[in-house]
Amino acid sequence: MSGEELGLWGVPLAILAGAIRVSTPFLFVALGECLTERSGRINLGLEGTLIFGAMTAYAVAYETGSPWLGVGAAAFAGAGFGLVHGAICGLRGVNDIAIGIALMLLGMGLAFFFGKAYVQPVAPQLPAVPLGFWSDIPQVRAALEVNALFILGAILAVVMAWMFRATRAGLIVRVVGDGAEPARALGVDPLRVRTLATMAGGALSGVGGAHLSLYYPGSWNEGISSGQGLMAVALVIFARWSPVNCFWAALLFGGAGALGPALQSVGVTEGRHLFGAAPYLLTLGLLIAASSPARSLAGAPAALGFNR
C-alpha cells in the first residue's frame, strides 16, 4: 500500500501522531499538578512555569548547544517557581490559588522579558525515537516518530503511581493531602512536604515547557503556550488525581488539539477555528460532566482548597 492510498485512514493516524506530540506538555504539567494537589495544594501558576520553562530550555539549549541541558535548566527553573509558591503559601492566611495566579503572570512576564533575544536564533532540538521502524508506510513511520520526553513522561506516570502506593514518600504525600492534622499526628511537617511537592511539580512543568520550545512547535515565541498549563489543572480533576489516568487524559486532550490540523491535512478546512477550540470545549465539557452538586468528588485530596 502506498502513502497516497491511505486516504481517510490518514485522519486517525494524524490524530494519533498529533496526540502524542501535543500531549507531552499536558502530560508533564498534569503529573506535576497531580503531585502538588495530592499534597493538598493547588498551583495555578504552572502555566507561567511552563512558559518560563520553555524560554529557559530554549535559551540554555541555544547557548550550550545541548537540548538536554536546556531540559535540565527548565526543570531547575520550574522547581524555583515551585519553591516560591510553596514558601509563600506557608505563611499564615495566604491563599494558594491567588498566589498561583500571581505567579502565573510573573512567570509569563519574566519569560517574555528574558526571552526577547531568543525569538530569532535557532536552538538544537530534542531527539525523537523512531517507533515506526517496523512499517513500510511513510505516514506510519512519521506518526510514530515519538519524542523522547513523551516516553519519559509515560514511564514517569507509572513510577508516580507506584510511588503513591508503595513508598514512604508517596504515602506521606497522600497523608498530607488528607489534612495537616493527621500529618502532624504522624510527626510529619506538612509545610515541608507541600513545598517539596510543589517544587517537584514545578520542575515537571518546566520540562513540559522544554518540550514546547525544543520539540513541538520547536521554537520560542510569546504565543508558545495556549493555556496548556491551565487546562492541565482541569485534566488532573478529570483524571481523579491518578497519575496513570493523567497519562490517558493527556492523550485525549492532545488528540482533541490535533483534530483541527489532522482534518486540514485531508483537506477539510471548513470550521478550522472551531476545531481549534476543541481542547477548550473538551475541558469545559469534562468539568461539567465530572462535577455534581449532590456529591463530593471521589478521590479528591481532602485538604485541597475547593474541598475546604
Partner: peptide, 9 residues
C-alpha cells in the same frame, strides 16, 4: 476522640 487515621489511606 477525633480519629487520627488518614481517611484516604
Amino acid at each position: 476522640q477525633h480519629f487520627t487515621l488518614v481517611p484516604s489511606l
